[in-house]
Amino acid sequence: MPDKTHVKAVVVCGLMIAAAMICSYLESFIPIGLPGVKPGLANLVVLDCIWLMDPLWVVMIMTVRIVLSGFMFSGMSAMLYSLAGGIVSLTVMLIAKKHTKLSMLGVSIMGGVSHNIAQLIVAASVVRTLAVLSYLPVLLTAGAVAGTIVGLAGRQILPLLKKSGIDF
């Protein structure tokens, strides 16, 4: 990769990390009655990044975002759950984008659902109790709904980002 592109990549990644952190901060103000259910607004940034740049950059953006907001807002143990969910959902989304005919909407749904499944598995292994898995249906449905919202929003935002020359 030529140097100029590299500089641009670093700048854009910084912007994206900042945007994702603002999203995850804002979402802490959205009240949802169900424990553990979140809209996953930060995934909006990650989702669009998947369409804008190389997978490695997206992995980096996601990891830095989670580690930073872990230190700043959510605390260490919550950070590990986010990291597990983030890594699994990003992997699933990258695979879904490359190897299926799903559009951004479908990819986002896959991401939301796999994120929730991964977090629940980590939770079940931390407390060493399978009974926790009875929460799976709620998280499955919530993940699909959140994924739909994020996917639809991501579709609207992607062309705007491209127009401002954010891709590389």
Binding site: T100, S103, G106, M110, P159
Partner: peptide, 11 residues
């Protein structure tokens, strides 16, 4: 950027 298709809805 594919259009939303039947696959997405099915999923």
């Amino acid at each position: 950027q594919r259009k939303i298709g039947a696959n997405d809805i099915k999923l």
